[in-house]
Simulated scan of single mutants.
Amino acid sequence: MHSRLRFGIDLGGSKIEIIALRDGQQILRQRCATPQGDYAATLNAIASLVHQCERELAANASIGIGIPGARSPATGLIKNANSTCLIGQDLAGDLEHLLERPIRLANDADCFALSEACDGAGAGASTVFGVILGTGVGGGIVINGQLLRGPNAIAGEWGHNPLPWRQPADGAVRRCYCGLDDCIETFLSGPGWAARSGLGLNADALAQAAASGEARAVQALKCYADQLARSLASVINILDPEVIVLGGGLSNIAALYDWVPPLLSRYAFTDQLSTRLLPAQHGDSSGVRGAAWLWP
């Protein structure tokens, strides 16, 4: 089964990307622009990419798709998607009809976690927590090579828990788009960190300023590292993963891998912390690779 041809598709807000894996090795990659706000055109774009790749490889493949949202276990329809034209649609059913075969869908953060657990930074670990630190904060949980989905399809959504062990230095209360206050995402997402720093810089510029030693940016990054450690420690106290893998734009900040582990030891409920904190091995390709691994 491992040598089967697998297609992984990443349905993003601006682009749709497809890769083909055989024996775990990428043999083809293509992409196209995502039709904006047009559900039918999005379906056709995905089908067109699949047919194009199958013609080129002269073979049929299993299909897994990572989406910016989740498929409701109750209705089968898409929910929690920032590509709003997907919400309320039977994406899986419609694509199965178009492509005449079963497909598998998962949240893009779940696909990231699965990729890194299968053949990435978490390969060989029995429990992997995959973290996205980017425009939003997401996560996925893989146990013994299997993605943990949960009855509500929200396993790993730590970004919408409140920041633990709140301190005065964390600043003012902020309302999250979900309607609740002080979600982890309002602190640890790129826009959240930038807004709370008060320095008028976006996350990329803030990280660069910290790397160059600008005092206020360094302080903002130290605050971020402490908030990240508290947030991850609360996950460790429940899940106790062997490996935590960081992905997304903010995962490229090298200082986090030096600063956060000692802080984890301060906050996690253990005498000695054995959990490893690692950067993603497959980087920006993890999501699309994980979609391909949705089939066993």
Results as ranks from 00 to 15, higher is better:
residue 61 A to V: 06
residue 273 L to A: 03
residue 261 P to K: 00
residue 60 N to P: 02
residue 221 L to D: 07
residue 76 G to K: 08
residue 174 R to I: 10
residue 212 S to W: 05
residue 177 Y to A: 07
residue 19 I to R: 09
residue 286 S to E: 06
residue 234 S to E: 15
residue 292 A to M: 02
residue 99 L to P: 15
residue 56 E to C: 02
residue 166 R to N: 05
residue 142 V to Q: 11
residue 247 G to D: 00
residue 79 K to R: 14
residue 118 C to F: 05
residue 253 I to R: 11
residue 92 A to L: 11
residue 231 S to N: 07
residue 29 R to Y: 05
residue 43 L to R: 15
residue 30 Q to D: 11
residue 45 A to Y: 10
residue 46 I to D: 01
residue 256 L to M: 06
residue 61 A to S: 11
residue 82 N to G: 01
residue 150 G to E: 13
residue 38 D to V: 08
residue 23 D to Q: 03
residue 197 S to D: 03
residue 184 I to K: 02
residue 177 Y to V: 07
residue 282 H to I: 04
residue 63 I to S: 09
residue 169 A to Q: 14
residue 68 P to T: 12
residue 45 A to P: 02
residue 29 R to D: 00
residue 23 D to S: 14
residue 266 R to A: 11
residue 293 W to I: 01
residue 226 D to H: 08
residue 294 L to V: 10
residue 194 A to C: 09
residue 9 I to Q: 07
residue 249 G to H: 01
residue 263 L to A: 03
residue 184 I to E: 02
residue 126 S to A: 07
residue 117 A to W: 14
residue 201 L to E: 04
residue 19 I to G: 04
residue 30 Q to L: 15
residue 30 Q to S: 07
residue 240 D to N: 14
residue 191 P to G: 08
residue 107 N to T: 13
residue 267 Y to I: 01
residue 43 L to G: 09
residue 171 G to C: 02
residue 204 D to I: 13
residue 288 V to P: 04
residue 111 C to F: 12
residue 166 R to V: 09
residue 162 P to H: 15
residue 221 L to P: 00
residue 72 S to W: 01
residue 61 A to H: 12
residue 231 S to A: 13
residue 107 N to M: 03
residue 174 R to L: 14
residue 40 A to K: 15
residue 257 Y to E: 05
residue 232 L to M: 15
residue 136 G to Y: 01
residue 194 A to W: 09
residue 116 E to I: 02
residue 44 N to I: 11
residue 252 N to L: 11
residue 100 E to R: 15
residue 151 P to R: 14
residue 224 Y to Q: 00
residue 280 A to F: 11
residue 84 T to P: 00
residue 42 T to L: 11
residue 206 L to I: 07
residue 4 R to N: 05
residue 184 I to W: 06
residue 282 H to A: 02
residue 164 P to H: 15
residue 118 C to I: 11
residue 10 D to E: 12
residue 29 R to I: 00
residue 202 N to K: 12
residue 264 L to K: 10
residue 181 D to V: 12
residue 37 G to D: 05
residue 170 D to M: 14
residue 273 L to C: 07
residue 152 N to P: 01
residue 29 R to H: 04
residue 209 A to M: 11
residue 83 S to P: 00
residue 26 Q to D: 01
residue 112 F to H: 03
residue 12 G to Y: 04
residue 226 D to S: 13
residue 222 K to E: 12
residue 292 A to L: 09
residue 291 A to F: 00
residue 77 L to C: 03
residue 215 A to D: 08
residue 264 L to F: 08
residue 65 I to V: 03
residue 41 A to F: 07
residue 210 A to W: 09
residue 86 L to C: 01
residue 48 S to I: 05
residue 149 R to D: 14
residue 5 L to A: 09
residue 69 G to S: 03
residue 197 S to N: 09
residue 163 L to D: 04
residue 142 V to T: 09
residue 252 N to T: 06
residue 30 Q to W: 12
residue 81 A to Q: 00
residue 275 T to M: 05
residue 179 G to K: 08
residue 145 G to T: 12
residue 256 L to W: 06
residue 138 G to C: 05
residue 44 N to A: 14
residue 63 I to Y: 10
residue 97 H to A: 13
residue 264 L to I: 06
